[in-house]
Design a protein around this nucleic acid. Sequence first.
DNA 1: CATAACATACCGTCCAGACGGTTTTTTTGT
DNA 2: ACAAAAAAACCGTCTGGACGGTATGTTATG
Lengths: 203, 203
Amino acid sequence: MESICFHFTSYISILRKGEVDIVTKTNNRVNILKAAAGIVREQGILALTLEAAASKAGVSKGGLLHYFPSKEKLIQGLVEHLNDSYVHNIRESVKNDQIKTGRWTRSFIQETNEQLINNQELNAGMLAALAVNPELLRPFQDAYQEWQKSMEEDGLNKVNATILRLAADGLWLSELFGLAPLEDDERQNVLEKLIKLSKEDFG
Amino acid sequence: MESICFHFTSYISILRKGEVDIVTKTNNRVNILKAAAGIVREQGILALTLEAAASKAGVSKGGLLHYFPSKEKLIQGLVEHLNDSYVHNIRESVKNDQIKTGRWTRSFIQETNEQLINNQELNAGMLAALAVNPELLRPFQDAYQEWQKSMEEDGLNKVNATILRLAADGLWLSELFGLAPLEDDERQNVLEKLIKLSKEDFG
DNA sequence: CATAACATACCGTCCAGACGGTTTTTTTGT
DNA sequence: ACAAAAAAACCGTCTGGACGGTATGTTATG
């Protein structure tokens, strides 16, 4: 009963609808990751201790250490978990985009925005990784490198595509640090313009 | 007398290399801030201890605590120091820009890029603040709010100006996390285009 | 009965901050 | 002009608690 519930929530974060989740045993593992991300989001990186994460996930410290034998492994697990979801969603979005020109750029913009709104855990993962060991960011960096390449070969002027990509990243930064984050309607306007610009050439 | 000293040392961090360091007896307060930023940059936030910062700055722990009575005050000092410089430089840049249209946007883009290249201490300060207490980011957030307002009243289309601003921020994010950071020449191209776009309307 | 999935107890280290100094600079009284 | 007083700058140790990680359990499951 409970396992079904947890199963469902973990399934949402990794897979989009339609997939079958074969791994049913990982619910506590995912619970721990979510707890860790939550702590970072709500109280900052320095508040992320093994005990705190375990307690919030409803397991003992020993239980946590069973899945993640060190703090670094915990963060690594978090990063990989989030990265999988990010990568997967963008790929899906590209697949569903009918227009060929700028589809990678468009998908990137949309999914980045999506993550900001519905999944601030991404911030938590990035910050935790940066704090503990920047090497842990590698999966993200690799994924980005790929995306950047795809966007440059997307049928748009290279510089233009890069500017659009950076604008989406800027949206992220502004949320991350609370640096003049956009109002909802203003962000909507910006988003629409970015999407529009991803279909034509400008400047 | 003392105020002059502070004035000068704060200038050291504002002026770029090539200037003469008149103040031979450098202010220890500023030394400590630089040391703290350096540690965060090189070894991450978790390596920032009072002892480490003191030692790197060449003072004792007691000496550090004389200037900054707590770790939080230390980070606060760091943030304020960096923010002062940032604000000052943008204001100067605006003053020196002959073209009226988009001068705030242009200055923002250029100075943000400048900070990224020559003063990665900014990253250190932001991350440290976020780690210790997000409230410490307030000065930056306030400054950004002001800039955003200025950019929106800069003679450009509001959405366009915001996109340019976000692109500059994206440049920052990409460096911060190493997410497909641009090659030097590519960044130059992007920068030039952003500057160009800040003089006309596009899209 | 073997292994995964936890829990409990405990250890060693690290670090923030307190505290009680000493030295140097500045101010003040004369 | 100068000593005395005050204040600012700086030093080094100590401690109590937090935290990462280990070691050793116990329970469920297949």
